[in-house]
Simulated scan of single mutants.
Amino acid sequence: MTERSVSHTSFVIERDFPAPPARVFNAWSDPDAKLSWSDCHTDARESEFSMDFRHGGHERYRVRLPEGLLIAVEKVFFDIVPDQRIIFGYDILIGDKRISASLVTVSFESSRKGTHMTYTEQLALLDGFTDVEERIHGTKEGFDRLELLLRDAAHA
């Protein structure tokens, strides 16, 4: 029998972006823009992505890594306030093992630099999964790509 466990943690990432809140929010709400900065598995053999950005809508991402491992992410949007806030929940499966379930709040505030974004993730880590530092690192890398996307759009 598989040993079952759950532990909880959270983390917060704050970023300032050189764009107004409406543009930063759009990078989260437009499926093409979202995939361009949030896909951290560009070496994948195959991937699927779909997003229905509305209250109760779903986002699905599946990727098969070069070594054959399947990663699946399922999200549901709980609250969306245009240009101000997004709240969603998601889980991650690696192969057939669910490693975590999370609740995320992303807030956007106008600032002197453009937008101050606060990302808060509350995680339930399942059945021995403990690599929170990898999750934080991957999330920060995505936000680095989001900043590049916003800077490129500003210069276009």
Rank of each mutant, 00 (worst) to 15 (best):
E59D: 06
W37F: 10
E133I: 05
E59Q: 10
N26M: 08
T9P: 02
E121G: 12
V12F: 03
S29L: 05
S110P: 08
V24R: 02
I80W: 04
M117Y: 03
Y119S: 09
E147H: 11
H8I: 03
L126F: 13
F77P: 06
S47A: 03
F11A: 00
D96K: 12
F78P: 00
L69P: 01
K113Q: 14
E109K: 12
D91L: 14
S102G: 08
T139S: 09
L126I: 13
E3M: 12
F78G: 10
F17Q: 02
T120S: 10
G56M: 13
T120Q: 14
V76S: 11
D39I: 02
R151D: 06
V106W: 04
G95D: 03
G95C: 10
E147T: 08
S7I: 03
L70I: 09
R4L: 08
E133W: 07
D52S: 09
S107T: 15
E3R: 11
G89V: 11
F129T: 03
Y61R: 04
S50L: 12
D96M: 11
Q122R: 07
R4C: 01
I86T: 04
G57N: 13
G89D: 13
R135H: 08
G114N: 06
K113C: 04
R15A: 01
R54A: 00
W28G: 12
T2R: 05
Q122V: 11
T130L: 13
L123S: 14
F129L: 08
K140R: 15
F88K: 00
A27C: 14
P20T: 01
V81Q: 11
I92W: 06
